[in-house]
Design a protein around this nucleic acid. Structure first.
Lengths: 140, 140
DNA sequence: CTAGACCCGTGATCCAGGTCTAGAGTCAAG
DNA sequence: CTTGACTCTAGACCTGGATCACGGGTCTAG
């Protein structure tokens, strides 16, 4: 077992994870990262655990979780009793929200696509279906 | 032809269109609405044209255009020469952006759906596929 | 005439998720 | 020892699209 404790500066961590230094400090302020050990100089000193946690945060963000939700996920992931159940639940909620958003966007896309298709691209403005849709009373 | 000029207060316009008074003043500041005629008291006085324009703005917003883009659409809609062509172009760009966004979200949804599906909803955190995906090195 | 509803402009505030600044201290290479 | 890169804190600022607060003026029904 390798229990060697490496010590990384905030800049090194930032580079490894591909995130800005300011973002790391911001996450710390927001409670997404624990307060790190400090060197005598006051410099933050990080170990591998922080790298993992930062990656966790970034992946969760990529999956559409807000920082607020991620904060919660981090707590849950440490709960050996109810953690997994709650995590799955949060993931399902997120999934439902994403699906809703997709559906909304698809409706918008379909509406817009139909307008684009029906517009000849020339002629008088008052005959342009796009402008008409934007101006007229009813837009289905 | 009915050229009767009605005169609406900002509050009446807001109610008709279903938008807040502050929003109307905000759009005016932002150049999306022309500066209206004023009564002797300084009150804004609006006609039907404003109603139409406000609805235009709202519909365009519903189609995913930003206020910046809408400002442009408003200019283009008044251009009798090149207006229609340019409007169609903007609509196509918007459409492409929405489609890109949908694709992104679908990828996220698929990833998340797979994780949710493979998670039993109980057991040890280190065996939860969701937590593993968030923590582990590679997430396809 | 008065109460209550409405309107005025200016500027501040909100949301999330950072990003940037200033001024000062620290570290490592040469 | 110096130079340049790095880090520290606190707080200001940014994006977009509003929304709210303030102190004051106006309008209208009774």
């Amino acid at each position: 077992m390798n229990t060697q404790h490496i010590s990384l500066t905030i800049g090194a961590v930032a580079k490894r994870v591909g995130v800005a230094i300011d973002t790391i400090r911001y996450y710390e302020r927001e409670g997404l990262l624990p307060e790190p050990v400090r060197r005598a100089s006051g410099y933050r000193s990080y170990g591998e655990g922080t790298i993992a946690q930062l990656r966790f945060i970034r992946r969760a963000k990529d999956l559409g979780f807000t920082l607020e939700e991620i904060r919660e996920l981090l707590v849950l992931s440490a709960d050996r009793q109810r953690g997994v159940k709650a995590v799955k639940q949060r993931a399902q909620q997120r999934l439902a929200a994403i699906e809703l958003r997709i559906t909304e966007l698809q409706r918008v896309r379909d509406g817009l696509a139909q307008l684009v298709e029906s517009c000849p691209g020339h002629g008088k403005p008052e005959e342009c279906p796009i402008l008409r849709a934007l101006s007229d009373e009813v837009l289905s």
